[in-house]
C-alpha cells in the first residue's frame, strides 16, 4: 500500500506535463496588466504560430531582471511599462537598436521616444497622470471635490491621499518629474513636503492607488488616469481628475533585449505590436491608454489627451539615469524620510 503511495507521488510530478516545445517561440517580458499581456500573446500566436513565453512584472522589476541577466539574456522583448526604465535600459546598452518600417505611421510622441533612445525603444501607448477620488468616501468624510494638485493640500485630505513610492515606481517618478517641470524644482519639493503630510501610504506599484481608491481603502489616489478609468468602468465609485494646473504623461514603450535567444521572433512581435489591430486589443483587456499608431482606434473611454492640460514633458532630460537618481535621492532625503 505504502509502495503504491510512493509510486503515485513519483508519477504525480513526472506526469505533470513539461509542456510541449513548439519550434518557434519568443520570450516576452510584459509590464502592463496581465489581461492585456495574455490577450496580446494569444493573438500573436494565432497570427504567427509562434509560441509566446510570457512573464508579467512591473517595469522596475523587469528592468532589474534584464540588468541582472545582462551576461546571459533570457528574454527577447520587453513590452509595455513606463518609458523611463526603457530609456534607462537603452542608456545602459541592454536593449538593441531596431527601426521598424511602421515607425513613420506612429504618433509624434512615439517617434520622439524612439529617437531619444537611439531607436532602442519605441512608444506603444500614452497615458496622462492625474488623480482619482472615491465619491462614497468623499461624501462620508464631507470632503470638498479636489480639482487641482493644490486642492490635495487642504486639511480635509490629511491622511487620505495615496501615491506610489518614487524609488520603486515609475508612475511616482513621473509625478515627481511632472511637478518639477510644472513649478520648478524648489516649488515642487515645497509642494511634495506639504503633500507628504496628506499621504497615508506610498505604495510599491503604480496602479495600486487607483485600486485602493476603488475599494475605498484610500479616498484619493495619484496615478495614471487610465488605471482609474478601468476601475470606474468595472463599477467602482471613482471620479477621474486631470489636475487644473496641468499634468505630465507617460509613453509606454517596447524594447528588444540585446542578445536574446530568439531575435527574429522578437522582431516579429515588435512589428505585430505596432499594428493598429494589435493596439486595438487593449480595450478588450480593459486597458484604456492612447495607442501609438495613428490608425489604431482610440478607446472612447480613454482620457482624451486633447482635453487635458499637458506639460511639455522633457523625456530626454528626465529619462536619464543621473537626473532620475538625483531627484529620487532628493525626494528621499527631503520628503520620504521626514516625519508626517
Amino acid at each position: 500500500m505504502r509502495t503504491i503511495a510512493i509510486l503515485a507521488m513519483l508519477a504525480a510530478f513526472l506526469i505533470a506535463p513539461g509542456l510541449a516545445r513548439a519550434q518557434g517561440e519568443v520570450v516576452v517580458y510584459c509590464s502592463v496588466l496581465v489581461d492585456w499581456c495574455n490577450l496580446m500573446s494569444q493573438e500573436f500566436t494565432r497570427a504567427t504560430g509562434i509560441r509566446v513565453v510570457l512573464t508579467q512584472k512591473g517595469s522596475g522589476e523587469t528592468f532589474a531582471q534584464i540588468r541582472a541577466e545582462a551576461n546571459n539574456p533570457r528574454g527577447d522583448v520587453w513590452w509595455g511599462g513606463t518609458g523611463d526604465p526603457h530609456l534607462q535600459a537603452a542608456e545602459a546598452n541592454l536593449t538593441e537598436e531596431y527601426r521598424s518600417p511602421a515607425l513613420p505611421r506612429l504618433h509624434d510622441w512615439a517617434q520622439r521616444q524612439a529617437q531619444q533612445s537611439g531607436f532602442r525603444t519605441v512608444g506603444i501607448y500614452a497615458g496622462a497622470l492625474g488623480f482619482t477620488y472615491n465619491t462614497q468616501a468623499l461624501a462620508r468624510g464631507r470632503m470638498p471635490e479636489p480639482r487641482c494638485w493644490r486642492d490635495l493640500l487642504q486639511p480635509a485630505f490629511r491622511g487620505e491621499v495615496q501615491m506610489s513610492n518614487p524609488p520603486s515606481s515609475g508612475t511616482a517618478y513621473t509625478a515627481l518629474a511632472t511637478l518639477v517641470q510644472l513649478w520648478g524644482e524648489e516649488e515642487a519639493f515645497n509642494y511634495l513636503r506639504q503633500l507628504h503630510r496628506q499621504i497615508n501610504q506610498y505604495t510599491r506599484s503604480g496602479p495600486a492607488p487607483s485600486r485602493n481608491a476603488a475599494r475605498g481603502e484610500t479616498t484619493v489616489g495619484i496615478m495614471f488616469l487610465h488605471d482609474a478609468v478601468a476601475e470606474a468602468i468595472e463599477g467602482a465609485p471613482l471620479r477621474v481628475v486631470a489636475p487644473c494646473e496641468g499634468t505630465g504623461y507617460e509613453i509606454g514603450s517596447m524594447s528588444i533585449i540585446r542578445g536574446g535567444p530568439n531575435r527574429e521572433n522578437a522582431r516579429r512581435w515588435y512589428e505585430f505590436a505596432l499594428t493598429p489591430a494589435a493596439q486595438a486589443l487593449a480595450v478588450r483587456a480593459k486597458s484604456y491608454q492612447i495607442p501609438s499608431h495613428r490608425d489604431a482606434p482610440v478607446p472612447e473611454q480613454a482620457p482624451r489627451l486633447a482635453d487635458i492640460r499637458l506639460i511639455d514633458y522633457d523625456f530626454a532630460r528626465y529619462g536619464t539615469t543621473a537626473e532620475r537618481n538625483r531627484l529620487i535621492q532628493r525626494w528621499e532625503r527631503e520628503v520620504g524620510s521626514q516625519p508626517r
Partner: peptide, 21 residues
C-alpha cells in the same frame, strides 16, 4: 528573482495578480 518566463512559480503568479488588484 529566479522565475523565468518558462519556469514561473505559483507564488510569483499570485503576487502579480495581487499587484494587478
Amino acid at each position: 528573482f529566479l522565475v523565468s518566463a518558462r519556469y514561473n512559480m505559483a507564488t510569483a503568479y499570485i503576487g502579480s495578480r495581487v499587484e494587478a488588484g
